[in-house]
Design a protein around this nucleic acid. Structure first.
Length: 464
RNA sequence: GUGGUUGUAGCUCAGUCGGUUAGAGCACCAGAUUGUGAUUCUGGGGGUCGUGGGUUCGAGCCCCAUCUUCCACCCCA
């Protein structure tokens, strides 16, 4: 028998008990917020038909989908000619299923398949893992959880406003104070393209100006020219990078620049509406100040986002002063269900990246002690007699709702105490011959190192 | 997919120019202490140096491949 060193695939992780407890705390905050806003849970299979996923995320995205090899003789339907046609063609022959890449597309599929049973507007949240065949790096994993909330079947911009509200609430509850919810609108981007004389080229323009933070004005200029945008247009575009002042002031300036483009008008109207809703909701995203002095909600005309299906407002959330990419993102998509044969259903949604949020909270040391759970009391036993005596005591403790355990063997006292110590169990109950004789059990407070002789009833009322 | 980086005890890491038997701290186990953890003292176990090839009298160290880690790009949560 060969010794095999076990390992897990690149970009995947095991989560030990301490980590799972903290992750569940984050999930809990998110879940409670979603439910408070009227979203209901949905789960879909990890595996989707490959055809459901392909073509929804752009060419780059298709490359990153984990495909599943057909079972059995996966080469049965393949001929030499198929191999000669290249890997993209061959993939369809040997793979019909794939791991889901996000939660939005499976949701759209679900909506289309269940259109007659769903009451619109349909609000659902979904917390499940997704898989991407990306090369791992900081904050980027091949298996990670998304927490999505989406609503389909309404064009109301109240949904966009509520997304801002939910993001603000979740991050605040998690103890984060310095974060920026960036918002933009695909209409604004299209309007800009039109206004600078490059109508229809907003795709290329977006990809380039999205990198403004990273590569600076000159870098963006170079990339735009490489992508075939005219020099005249690039020059006209540049003032937009440095739009100054409040969100309101930026909107006013955009009005001047995009005023006579239809798409620009659509974007501006939508954004105004979102601001109106938030204002009436007395949103903290408008009133609370970041450490930098900026409001949390920030109109950023350089925000583009890669996913090709967005058509209206788009969001992205960045925690400031930590080296981590966006922890949340989303937007409105008008045509996603049309790809599955159901036109005219607009949706909007967003997603929290729990793995990144976890990394940020850990880095900022914001996990509260209360997010720890575990055994409250350990019963230590000495011999067979004390073990039998301890069993009804154990049951009484559990009936009283106290998380408790009996050490399962008659190990040395030192070993049992040390077990309690390492599991951070705050109380130990000792049951030996003296205790059995008197009926008073020894309750030891492990933190203080103090112990008292108490009846089981007194112990229960003290630990409850 | 492109470029770089990392891997030595359970963990964090030393390991000189390629040269004898690969080290430390922490952790673990046992004892000091037959009814008391976390502190103290004493002792102990533990390694195919990521894996597979190659160069060499000799490889943890040099070369190639591969896996993994982390980082940047592309893209994204």
């Amino acid at each position: 028998m060969s010794k095999e060193k076990p390992s897990i695939p690149k970009g995947t992780r095991d989560f030990g008990p301490a980590v799972v407890v903290k992750r569940n705390y984050v999930f809990g905050v998110i879940r409670r917020t979603f439910e408070k806003f009227g979203y209901l849970p949905l789960e879909t299979p990890a595996v989707e038909q490959l055809s459901v996923l392909t073509g929804k995320y752009g060419d780059e995205g298709d490359q990153l989908i984990f495909k599943i090899l057909n079972s059995g003789d996966f080469l049965a339907k393949t001929k030499q000619a198929d191999i000669d046609e290249g890997h993209k063609h061959l993939t369809r022959k040997v793979s019909e299923k794939a791991l889901r890449y996000d939660l939005t597309v499976p949701f759209a599929r679900y909506v289309v398949m269940n259109r007659n049973d769903i009451t619109f507007p349909f609000k659902r949240y979904q917390i499940q893992p997704v898989w991407r065949a990306d090369r791992p790096q900081k904050g980027r994993y091949r298996e990670f959880y998304q927490c999505d909330a989406d609503v389909v079947g309404t064009n109301s911009l109240l949904c966009e406003a509520e997304i801002v509200q939910m993001i603000n609430e979740v991050l605040t509850k998690l103890g984060l104070t310095d974060f920026t919810i960036k918002i933009n609108h695909r209409g604004i981007l299209a309007g800009i393209a039109e206004a600078i004389g490059e109508k229809g080229r907003e795709g290329d323009i977006c990809v380039a100006i999205d990198k403004l933070d990273k590569i600076g004005k000159e870098g963006v200029r170079k990339e735009l020219l490489e992508r075939g945008i005219s020099e005249k247009a690039v020059t006209k575009l540049e003032p937009l990078y440095s739009l100054e002042g409040s969100n309101k002031a930026v909107l006013d300036q955009l009005q001047t620049i995009l005023g006579d483009t239809a798409e620009g008008q659509r974007g501006l109207k939508d954004l105004h509406e979102v601001w109106n809703y938030l204002s009436r909701l007395n949103s903290e995203a408008l009133t609370a100040q970041n450490d930098s002095g900026n409001p949390r909600l920030l109109l950023d005309v350089t925000l583009a986002r890669g996913l090709s299906y967005y058509t209206g407002c788009i969001f992205e959330v960045k925690v400031n002063n930590v080296s981590m990419g966006s922890i949340s993102g989303g937007g409105r998509y008008d045509n996603l269900t049309r790809m599955f044969g159901l036109p005219g259903v607009s949706g909007v949604g967003f997603s929290f990246g729990v793995d990144r949020i976890y990394d940020v909270i850990e880095e900022l040391q914001l996990f509260p002690d209360s997010s720890q759970v575990g055994t409250k009391a350990l019963i230590v036993q000495f011999d067979r007699e004390s073990e039998l005596y301890a069993l009804p005591v154990l049951q009484q403790l559990r009936d009283a709702g106290i998380a408790s355990e009996l050490y399962p063997e008659q190990a040395k006292l030192k070993k049992q105490m040390s077990y309690a110590d390492q599991k951070s169990i705050p109380y130990v109950i000792l049951i030996g011959s003296e205790e059995m004789a008197s009926g008073k059990l020894k309750l030891r407070n492990m933190e203080l190192g103090e112990q008292q002789d108490l009846t089981i009833d007194d112990i229960i009322s003290q630990l409850k």
